[in-house]
């Protein structure tokens, strides 16, 4: 039950895009049509699911104040949390690079459709953001972190596919020239964000 509420909350209430603006750059750049949006969205979910548990364990056993106490009493006071940014981003970048190499070698067809997005993901703020939020909220277990990863990934996926669908329609409408493209996309996302705000009041 707790997991379900965490999941729903991270999909709708704490939506990465609408509540935190995370992963906005690739969100706006790759939402011109539904097919590519779908690919990027799935890639984000996948990378989140794989990197968040790694970062969770890193945080728990290396970074937190007192996390190194399993090494012995002398290490109980060590606080390495100032290294968290660098370690989290290194894990994400290394993981993305690894996946890129594996996929390129063994699954060329998947690589053709997904591959171009992978380098984009290393610098997607939603991925690093999820790790930082995970650290801030101190989840109790790997499973909880994993549920959070799944939830925020799906939230991001929903947001990008929805925007892509709207933008496909928008390309047929008569919009003032200076507003075409990026301008109207911003305003659309703003309106979608307002719609998503209704979820803030729900209690689960």
């Amino acid at each position: 039950m707790e997991y379900l509420s965490l999941f729903v909350k991270s999909v709708f209430v704490d939506n990465m895009i609408f509540a935190y603006f995370l992963g906005m750059c690739s969100y706006l750049a790759v939402s011109k049509n539904v097919k590519t949006a779908n690919g990027l969205g799935l890639a984000v979910i996948f990378v989140l699911l794989c990197t968040l548990p790694i970062n969770y364990l890193l945080n728990r056993f290396v970074l937190q104040p007192g996390a190194l106490s399993w090494l012995g009493k002398d290490f109980a006071d060590v606080d390495l949390s100032f290294l968290s940014f660098i370690l989290f981003i290194a894990v994400i970048a290394a993981f993305v690079q690894l996946v890129e190499m594996i996929v390129e070698k063994y699954l060329p067809s998947l690589y053709a459709s997904l591959g171009i997005f992978l380098p984009l993901i290393a610098v997607n703020c939603a991925i690093l953001g999820a790790s930082l939020f995970m650290q801030q909220r101190e989840f109790a277990s790997v499973l909880e972190a994993e549920v959070y990863a799944l939830g925020s990934g799906i939230g991001w996926y929903l947001a990008i596919v929805a925007l892509a669908a709207i933008r496909e329609k928008l390309s047929y409408s008569n919009i003032p020239a200076p507003l075409r493209g990026t301008g109207i996309a911003f305003i659309t996302v703003g309106l979608m964000g307002m719609a998503f705000m209704i979820f803030m009041g729900i209690q689960i």
């Binding site: 911003f186 305003i187 703003g190 964000g193």
Partner: peptide
């Protein structure tokens, strides 16, 4: 003040 307005 709310986030969506920044986008608009």
């Amino acid at each position: 003040i709310l986030p969506p307005f920044a986008l608009i």
